[in-house]
């Protein structure tokens, strides 16, 4: 099968790889680059576990053809913390018990980051809307919403 060359920024670093036609970004990230933070949940855009940011915008990597991110910047949970320092969202998720099995957490964190990057002071309703494409099955929405609101507050306090 003919492979297509592909180059993009992955969490601030340039990566280059060859992909088969039809390969989605989730497979490219996990199997070709080895970034295991985006998760496979459904492969049909229903659960949000594979959420990543492309040029700062929230996308479902399972529905994104890998070839379409050529020359663009992809951010995953792996790039969220700053060296050893956790991002305020990660600290808030820990403090608010906003993860149980942890499988939806990478997607939730990326959806929350996309929200706070464009709206540092969201209302509760805006947080609910922002994570509405991400399914949690361990009964965790309330602590997750509280964590995003707490991270927004702590982010404003730092700024």
């Amino acid at each position: 099968m003919t492979k297509t060359p592909l180059q993009f920024r992955h969490n601030g670093r340039d990566v280059a790889l060859f992909v088969d036609g039809g390969v989605n970004l989730l497979v490219a990230l996990r199997e070709l680059i080895g970034d295991m933070t985006p998760k496979f949940g459904c492969g049909q855009g229903g659960c949000g576990a594979c959420s990543v940011l492309i040029d700062g915008e929230l996308h479902l990597s399972c529905l994104t053809l890998a070839e379409t991110v050529n020359g663009r910047a992809v951010e995953t949970l792996d790039g969220l913390k700053d060296g050893p320092n956790l991002h305020p969202l990660q600290r808030a998720f820990m403090e608010q018990f906003a993860a149980q099995c942890g499988y939806c957490t990478p997607g939730m964190l990326m959806a929350a980051k996309a929200l706070l990057d464009r709206n540092p002071s969201p209302t509760r309703a805006e947080v609910v809307e922002a994570i509405s494409g991400n399914i949690c099955r361990c009964t965790g929405y309330e602590p997750i919403i509280n964590a995003v609101l707490a991270a927004a507050t702590s982010g404003r306090a730092r700024a």
Binding site: L77, D78, A99, G102, P106
Partner: peptide, 11 residues
């Protein structure tokens, strides 16, 4: 929890 929020918990 630290593994969950950093995406390093190994499934």
């Amino acid at each position: 929890m630290l593994g969950h929020v950093t995406g390093t918990s190994t499934y």
